[in-house]
């Protein structure tokens, strides 16, 4: 992969990490709030169902996590194994797409 492509992967992973810093903070804050208030699953779904703001937030969160994790996984694989080339890029791309889809599906389940 070219130096330019590698650099853009690095920029993308850092950008996704920046989004995650805010998303994880908000996510943990809502967990603490829900636990302290003793909210039931029904009460939580009552707040998220039909709420476009939560849907958008969790979709962004899920996609950022998949991108950040996928590029990081690629780096770890390249540093710890001899796996290189198109098969690695395809596997990592599949990991990112499947991770993002699974996350979006979960966000949709909270919304619908």
């Amino acid at each position: 992969m070219s130096a330019r492509a590698e650099t853009w992967l690095w920029i993308t992973q850092r950008g996704a990490g920046l989004i995650l810093a805010f998303a994880v903070t908000l996510h943990i804050a809502t967990i603490i709030y829900a636990v302290h208030r003793g909210l039931s699953a029904t009460a939580i779904l009552g707040r998220t169902q039909g709420n476009v703001a939560w849907l958008v937030f969790y979709i962004i969160f899920a996609v950022a996590a998949a991108i950040h994790g996928g590029i990081g996984l690629r780096t770890i694989i390249r540093e710890t194994t001899s796996w290189r080339g198109a098969s690695l890029e395809a596997a990592v791309a599949a990991f990112v797409v499947l991770g993002a889809l699974a996350g979006c599906r979960a966000a949709a389940a909270l919304f619908a």
Binding site: M1, A3, R4, E6
Partner: peptide, 11 residues
């Protein structure tokens, strides 16, 4: 900068 970018360079 092209020479030092990428997975063999600063990144």
């Amino acid at each position: 900068l092209r020479a030092v970018a990428g997975d063999a360079g600063c990144h």
